[in-house]
């Protein structure tokens, strides 16, 4: 957590100028005002050095939220710095050794925009540090501070667009439909668990008229709780990069569709898979899996066989493009 200092271009030029002036001062007879100016320039440099250092000294990282986000889309980060409040810093993340600029913080009391992570490709990356750089106050020196942090940057595939209505128009003939099939939902809430008397609030669509007529009291169908619905998918990772990405996008869309539906999605693939339920935790795990997975060569082992499960990418098209 050491603050590193080095002169900026302006500072280096200023230093050269100062040296030249000092040489001129020494070469000629003593001159009071010339001396005053040299003192002034040196003071600006010296205090600038101290203040630039002090600006970042003691800054700590309280919190870094790097939420999972879709590939190719910028996302806002949550960043909270503690200790002293630095001014005019630019914030960057060290992601797998690469420096990613995420924005500036002015620190002058005005509203600060949240740091914005630029669009990234689908990957599971490690954030090793938050790098703060600042040339405040005079721009003569640049201070750099790396705040170590261990966080995972999950960039999951962007969910495929959901456009059943005009898919024909939008697609060219060579496009296959991996991204367009919705999650099968025919069974959703359809299983009838039994009959029970009508209670206020029950839907009239659920009325079992026959039983009502038989018993003389309103009877409704009681439906199976929806949470038990599950959908199995098999992802074959042996396919070209582009098709693989499309399949992942399609999976991502299915994952998004799970939210609030009470269903679950089980994905089988080579080297494991994931189970996504309608909760945040399993969704995060699924996103992480989708971010990290890679395509396999055609010679690799096939995915496990699951009876009745849909296959992705569709085998019919796989041969054509493979």
């Amino acid at each position: 957590m050491r603050v590193r200092l080095r002169p900026t271009q302006l500072g280096a030029k200023g230093l050269l100028l100062l040296l030249a002036l000092i040489a001129a001062f020494l070469a000629t007879n003593y001159n009071n005002l010339f001396f005053l100016l040299i003192v002034f320039c040196t003071t600006v440099g010296g205090l600038g050095l101290c203040w630039t250092w002090g600006n970042l000294r003691g800054v700590t990282l309280l919190r870094l939220d790097a939420p999972p986000g879709p590939a190719g889309e910028a996302r806002a980060l949550g960043l909270e710095l503690g200790g002293r409040r630095p001014r005019a810093v630019s914030v960057a993340l060290l992601v797998d050794g690469e420096v990613v600029e995420v924005g500036d913080r002015l620190g002058f009391g005005s509203a600060e925009p949240a740091p914005l992570l630029p669009p990234r490709p689908r990957a599971l990356a490690q954030i090793t540090a938050v790098r703060l750089t600042s040339r405040f106050p005079f721009g003569l020196f640049r201070a750099r501070l790396d705040l170590p942090v261990a966080a995972e940057l999950v960039t999951h595939p962007a969910p495929a667009a959901n456009h059943h209505g005009h898919r024909r128009a939008a697609h060219t003939a060579t496009d296959d439909d991996d991204g367009d099939q919705p999650l099968p939902q025919g069974r959703r809430g359809s299983a009838v668990a039994g009959l029970r008397p009508f209670r206020s609030g029950d839907s009239f669509g659920d009325m079992h008229w026959k039983a009502t007529a038989r018993r003389g009291v309103p009877i409704v169908r009681e439906r199976e709780p929806e949470g038990d619905l599950r959908c199995d998918l098999v992802l074959d990772r042996r396919c070209p990069e582009q098709r693989f990405e499309r399949a992942l996008s399609r999976l991502m869309r299915d994952l998004a569709a799970l939210r609030g539906s009470g269903r679950s999605l089980v994905v089988h693939s080579q080297g494991g898979g994931f189970v996504a339920r309608d909760d945040r935790k399993s969704e995060l795990a699924a996103q992480r899996w989708l971010a990290a997975t890679t395509s396999l060569p055609a010679a690799a082992a096939p995915p496990p066989h699951v009876s009745g499960a849909e296959r992705l990418p569709r085998s019919g098209h796989g041969g054509r493009h493979g």
């Binding site: 500036d104 002015l106 002058f108 005079f138």
Partner: peptide, 18 residues
């Protein structure tokens, strides 16, 4: 001016109040 210059070099635009 040096200070404003140093701050604005990182910042693409600065509001009047800032």
């Amino acid at each position: 001016s040096l200070e404003l210059h140093a701050v604005t070099r990182g910042q693409s635009c600065l509001t009047r109040a800032a």
